[in-house]
Nucleic acid binder design. Structure first.
Lengths: 153, 153
DNA sequence: CCTGAAAATCGCAGTCG
DNA sequence: CGACTGCGATTTTCAGG
């Protein structure tokens, strides 16, 4: 499950996490590789599943989603099926993590207004008990995994 | 703060969120625009702050981070400064949301092992009381904002 | 927003260490 | 086996309509 990544692989991951559209030739320059070698490396990272895709990052507020909330969902027994149905229907649910502990799921929800959020939380509340927190702001810009200090050379 | 996005803009955002490396010429084909018009649209979305960047998505497990956890942090008064210091030092903290409610912050933490996670939680516990949940798995693949049903034509 | 050109890049050969 | 070179196709970019 865990690939062996050398320092160059980590450098490539760092560059592509910072700018996913970086041309492969420029990427090669930055990590001291020829364009074809860089291409080969990137392709290996993609096919081995280390890089799972490339995404444009979109500002929620500027696209009309002024409210971001975290909803914790707890319910007895297994109401998984109706939850999955909701995930398919409500595009406002951006993230859904199944977690250990008192709660079953942790959801990240984007809404246009507080009223909009209220409607979504109402739907979730039909499945179990919810605890909703509004996000003031994301404190960190963005971060993916980086090379561990004790990693291989 | 909120930009006016038409159907074409939303189509572009959908494509680029699904594949951030999509060539602009191909993007134009998919949304029925010439390459130059598509480029112009994308550039407008970038400069207006709707698109904040492009990121390669990296698989945590395959890069040696087998454990993903959510840590809720609560503390009295304002211990913001030491937390920000920790955010700068510990790259394992991938996300940090300041939220309303009983907890102050919600953190997403990636660790190599349970022991590794324990060390990070210990550091966080010096700031206040923590509640840690291990993530079984992300239930949703990925999602960014999409065009609302009641959006403009 | 489209057309059409030059410049850069991408992708795939074949080749070397 | 991993990395470098060369060539054709595609893309990018910028002019003008």
């Amino acid at each position: 499950m865990t690939e062996n990544l050398d320092a160059t692989d980590w450098a490539i991951l760092a560059e592509l996490q910072q700018d996913g559209r970086l041309p492969l030739a420029e990427l090669g320059r930055r990590v001291n590789l020829s364009a074809s070698a860089a291409t080969e490396r990137v392709r290996r990272l993609e096919t081995s599943g280390v890089i799972t895709g490339y995404r444009a990052e979109v500002d929620l507020a500027r696209t009309g989603y002024a409210v971001l909330a975290v909803v914790r969902l707890k319910y007895p027994g297994s109401r998984h099926e109706p939850l999955h149905r909701l995930l398919g229907e409500r595009a406002e649910i951006l993230e859904c993590l199944r977690v250990t502990g008192e709660d079953c799921y942790l959801l990240k929800v984007a809404a246009a207004t507080m009223g909009h959020l209220e409607g979504i939380v109402d739907e979730l509340a039909q499945l179990g008990s919810t605890t909703t927190s509004i996000v003031y702001r994301p404190t960190l810009p963005y971060r993916g995994p980086r090379r561990p200090a004790q990693g291989p050379a």
